[in-house]
């Protein structure tokens, strides 16, 4: 054949078509078998891993964003709480001041009123005492005068006389 002298390794004086067929059949069969039993599953696993890694990265990114958001939220909440607390403290202080003033004022007014009442009472008592003393003095004077004069004058005149005397005495006093 034309190719005969090109066939270097084989010693036959012919082109061995059988080897060509055998090579093709064996190689293609090997490829198909490997695809089914080895490469296919292996590629599947590698693809699976790739997907897994992709999804893991995505999840990590998402949770990072979420935590960032939560952190911001917490921060603003904390800030709010702090201002609110400050406000509350301030209010309480103000309220405390106001009620202190009020209490002091009330106490002062109360004490003033009590003092006034006491003064009034004292004055009343004094007046009462004075009039009682006056009455006693009149009676005593009357008795004394009766005894001194040993002369009975009409009780009416007597009383008038004594009252005059006492009034005079009061004026002198």
């Amino acid at each position: 054949m034309f190719f005969d002298h090109l066939v270097l390794g084989a010693t036959g004086e012919f082109l061995n078509i059988g080897d060509i067929l055998a090579t093709l059949v064996i190689f293609i069969l090997l490829m198909l078998l490997l695809k089914k039993f080895a490469w296919g599953p292996l590629m599947g696993v590698m693809q699976q891993r790739e997907d897994l890694i992709k999804s893991e990265i995505e999840t990590a990114e998402n949770s990072r964003l979420e935590s960032q958001k939560l952190l911001e939220e917490q921060r603003s909440l904390l800030k709010d709480a702090r201002t609110q607390a400050q406000e509350i403290v301030e209010n309480a202080k103000k309220q405390g001041d106001v009620s202190r003033e009020e209490i002091i004022t009330t106490a002062r007014a109360e004490s003033g009123r009590m003092k006034e009442a006491a003064v009034q009472e004292i004055a009343n008592e004094r007046d009462k005492a004075i009039s009682a003393v006056r009455e006693e003095v009149v009676a005593l004077s009357l008795l004394a005068a009766t005894k001194v004069l040993e002369k009975e004058i009409s009780e009416e005149d007597n009383r008038q006389l004594i009252n005059e005397t006492i009034a005079k005495a009061g004026e002198v006093q």
Binding site: N16, I26, F37
Partner: peptide
């Protein structure tokens, strides 16, 4: 009428078997 080099066929089969 087709010539086979049996050594080739055997070695191809062995190689294929080992790879598989």
């Amino acid at each position: 009428g087709i010539w086979f080099n049996l050594s080739n066929v055997m070695m191809l089969l062995i190689a294929a078997l080992i790879v598989f």
